[in-house]
Design a protein around this nucleic acid. Structure first.
Lengths: 248, 248
DNA sequence: CAGCAAGATTAGCGTAGTCTAATGACCGTC
DNA sequence: GACGGTCATTAGACTACGCTAATCTTGCTG
């Protein structure tokens, strides 16, 4: 016999439950937010993302990803395409952009206000982004003067989820001799970031690709200094192309 | 047959697991921290606290509290006394004080740096305290110049867990005509706090108890103004006694 | 000292999220 | 057109919490 007395009560910490009941912090669980955010970063709003790709990125087993994708699909935050691949719906994208916004504002805060190192704030922001309320986020944004970019050059979406579209390409996609300006750096690996920082590969600096070997070794010039790196080493550096020196 | 291949893996979000694996954020789960913190606030390091008291304070059912207390006892963070009452061990107290420290530093930050309202920061701090790493906490403390008290007058433990001992009494414990200075205000109820603020009942202000009825109605003077309140209304206001005007 | 009421615990579930092992589905290749 | 490998999913467990209902313990009170 079915007993409706045994009510389904979500198992969240009392403080969180209390806050949610009062209307504040009515947000997704942290795992859901993580999945959506990563999907957005993998452009799942424009093309379907495979289960395995998502699982690897989230450091989660494929069955876990399948499981969570099924839930998110049930909640209409994404749709499943061929081979289980996921594509964000409009509301999924909206929530994902909110998560990205929180993450980038927090990274900016950690660097600009708390003075933490540029190359090592991702992880702290990753945890904090699930804990800041809208009120705290608004206050953070206010004290920083509504920044438009995070410390790694990523644009920060506004409160309506609007995000400037930029025409950026990977550094490795430049042709030999081509000039460009560094705009965004992938921020998940502190060691690589610290390396980039030492080489002067930071948002705003001018680069010129000198040579691209077939075996994936790249030589380039940044701030007058010559650097060499493998494809792995510069993966995640996005640049804005510069017109080849002057008009013809 | 027992299969050791099926390892017990704690179910925490990947970001948290990753951080913990790297040595950072090697902290208790948020529920554990909440229990310890509340136990500390209820003086469970000096006297045993009953299960029901704890459960009510945490807004949790008695069985849930029993359950968690059993775990914490297994982990040597507390011991059980008669009738299931809990008493913190040295390591339990240490962790509790760390949690209190984080909470109070965050409240101070929310008020002093982010400019949020004094009477309504408890809840945000409650959530954030589980998300700040030691690194972020140290940075927060640094930018604020190592504050000694939170906005409600509670002393902030230092990094070694040291906490100044103060001889404070509840406002309601004063005798008629006795003078005192407000030192600490219980911060869990925003509405009551806002009320106190309007009445000028803030840390540092001078009070004088005028009359204490047997039925629990108190009349007192604060900053020259006369106020009347029930026992409930001033529960949680701790004051420091003042020598009765001049020497005899 | 018997009985009752309060308070603590046991028993049994529920949800969120994770995992491994085994199985199923697709796709390109020969 | 069968076949092998890659990828996804199902099956089954496990942890961390939370809850209700029922039971056990205790201490007080008449």
């Amino acid at each position: 016999m079915f007993r409706p007395s045994r009510v389904a009560v979500p198992s969240r910490p009392p403080a969180v439950r209390a806050a949610a009941a009062r209307g504040r912090l009515a947000r997704l669980t942290r795992s859901r937010e993580d999945y959506l955010k990563v999907l957005f970063e993998l452009d799942a709003d424009t093309r379907a993302v495979a289960v395995g790709v998502l699982a690897r990125r989230l450091a989660v087993s494929p069955p876990s990803a399948t499981n969570m994708l099924a839930r998110l699909a049930r909640e209409r935050l994404l749709t499943r395409a061929a081979r289980g691949a996921a594509r964000l719906t409009a509301s999924g994208r909206r929530l994902a952009v909110e998560a990205v916004r929180r993450h980038r504002l927090l990274e900016t805060f950690l660097v600009r206000v708390l003075g933490l190192d540029w190359s090592d704030v991702h992880e702290d922001a990753e945890v904090l982004e699930h804990a800041v309320s809208d009120r705290v986020l608004a206050a953070l944004e206010r004290v920083m003067g509504h920044p438009g970019e995070d410390p790694h050059g990523h644009p920060i979406p506004d409160r309506l989820g609007r995000l400037p579209r930029r025409a950026l390409v990977p550094l490795a996609a430049l042709g030999a001799g081509e000039r460009a300006v560094v705009r965004e750096l992938e921020d998940r690996e502190p060691r690589r970031m610290a390396h980039w920082k030492r080489e002067g590969l930071v948002p705003g600096s001018a680069v010129r690709l000198l040579r691209a070997d077939a075996d994936g070794v790249f030589a380039f010039e940044v701030g007058g200094r010559r650097c060499v790196a493998g494809r792995e080493g510069i993966d995640g550096v996005l640049v804005e192309r510069r017109r080849a020196g002057g008009r013809p």
